[in-house]
Simulated assay, not measured.
Amino acid sequence: MEDLQQFVEKIHDKQAKDEKNRRHQGKGTPGDKLPNKQHSTNK
């Protein structure tokens, strides 16, 4: 039974990390994604 609990915790951790990465990279909301190479035009 403890193996099942560890498995569930592992899955929840992975889902939380995936959601954080999606928000950070703007996959769900492309308008929120930060532009790459932000300083290249500020010479």
Rank of each mutant, 00 (worst) to 15 (best):
M1S: 09
D3L: 06
K33P: 00
Q5M: 05
M1A: 09
Q5P: 00
T29R: 13
G26Y: 00
T41K: 11
G31A: 04
Q38W: 12
D18K: 10
K33T: 04
I11L: 14
D13R: 15
E2K: 07
L4P: 01
K43H: 10
K17L: 08
G31R: 02
G28T: 13
D18P: 00
L4N: 01
T29N: 15
P35S: 05
D32G: 08
Q15K: 06
K14T: 02
K33I: 03
D3M: 04
K17D: 11
K37C: 09
D13S: 13
S40K: 14
E2S: 06
N42R: 15
D18I: 10
K33H: 03
G26C: 00
D32H: 05
E9L: 11
N36G: 11
F7R: 15
T29W: 11
T29Q: 11
L4E: 05
L4D: 01
D3T: 08
L4W: 03
Q6M: 08
H24S: 03
E9A: 15
I11R: 12
S40E: 15
D18Q: 10
Q25H: 08
D3G: 04
F7S: 09
D18N: 08
S40G: 01
S40W: 14
K10F: 09
E9W: 02
A16E: 10
M1T: 06
D3K: 07
I11Q: 12
Q38M: 14
M1Q: 12
H12V: 14
E19W: 03
N21R: 06
R22H: 03
K37G: 11
A16W: 03
D32E: 10
K33M: 06
M1C: 02
H39T: 15
H24K: 11
D18Y: 06
N21H: 05
Q6D: 11
N21C: 02
L34K: 13
Q38S: 11
N36D: 14
R22C: 05
Q5G: 01
Q25M: 08
T41R: 13
G26V: 00
R22L: 01
P30C: 00
R22Y: 03
F7Q: 12
G26W: 01
H39F: 14
T29E: 12
Q15G: 06
L4K: 05
H12F: 07
K37M: 12
T29D: 15
A16I: 05
K33Y: 01
R22A: 09
K17S: 08
D13L: 08
Q38Y: 10
L4C: 02
P30N: 00
G26I: 00
Q6S: 11
K10R: 13
K20R: 09
H39S: 12
N21Y: 04
K14G: 04
Q25W: 06
K20N: 01
V8Y: 03
N36K: 14
N42G: 07
K43P: 05
N36H: 13
T41N: 10
K33F: 00
V8D: 07
N36M: 09
E19M: 03
T41M: 05
K43M: 04
